[in-house]
Design a protein around this nucleic acid. Sequence first.
DNA 1: CATTAATATAAGTATTGACTTATATTCGTG
DNA 2: CACGAATATAAGTCAATACTTATATTAATG
Lengths: 120, 120
Amino acid sequence: MHVFEVLADPVRRRILELLARGEMASGEVVEMIGAEFGITQAAVSQHLKVLRESGFANVRAEAQRRFYSVDVAGLRAVDAWVGQFRNFWEPKLDALATEIARGKRERRNAPITKRRGKRA
Amino acid sequence: MHVFEVLADPVRRRILELLARGEMASGEVVEMIGAEFGITQAAVSQHLKVLRESGFANVRAEAQRRFYSVDVAGLRAVDAWVGQFRNFWEPKLDALATEIARGKRERRNAPITKRRGKRA
DNA sequence: CATTAATATAAGTATTGACTTATATTCGTG
DNA sequence: CACGAATATAAGTCAATACTTATATTAATG
């Protein structure tokens, strides 16, 4: 399942927000999410499965308990994709990349101009 | 439609990547996306509608043509949500927030310790 | 070792949303 | 003003997925 499909579900987003505060046993997640969304243990378990299989959560077993925690892999993937566009609202550092893009665009229709300075 | 649902669709993600290179007329988008995904003009138009209604794209009319461009609003919203977790893999600047979270977690089960210093 | 606790899985259902074809709208142009 | 070009919308279909209930698995415990 693609990272953005994973985060498209509000329950999964909420679970991640809970895990951000520290690892939680499956049962704790079931309680909180159950209270907030009114869904069953099975449903929560299925969401946890999605999160773990898509790189958003890690599991650690302790007796019958499963402790879930945030796995950054998924979040980094999302961040990387959004990063493609970050220069659109944060021109500060990446001004060069922005310049290149804008240059390309404008040069397409621009009138021909004599260039001065070194040539190969 | 929630921002993450918007980006859950590969066609919409691709459209945004195209728009990142500069504004495009609807027709141009239809050509490129049609070629890549094999879908009709109507389908692309519907995706453009979603993008514009969810704050990911702006439209500008010129005669019968509609020129689409990236709107950062949606992307910023996504970035903000992911930002909640950024300290998980970028502890550098936000070390304080990370510290607070970790502290909370550990204090839960920690042995009681005498605290020193000012009190209210 | 039978029972209970904690979690996962199986199987079925219902809703959502991404398509399709067909049609409407809007504008320039002969 | 009729027509063609560019785009949007309407209506219907189909597949994906988020649920449900029921059951399986695994481990501690009396």
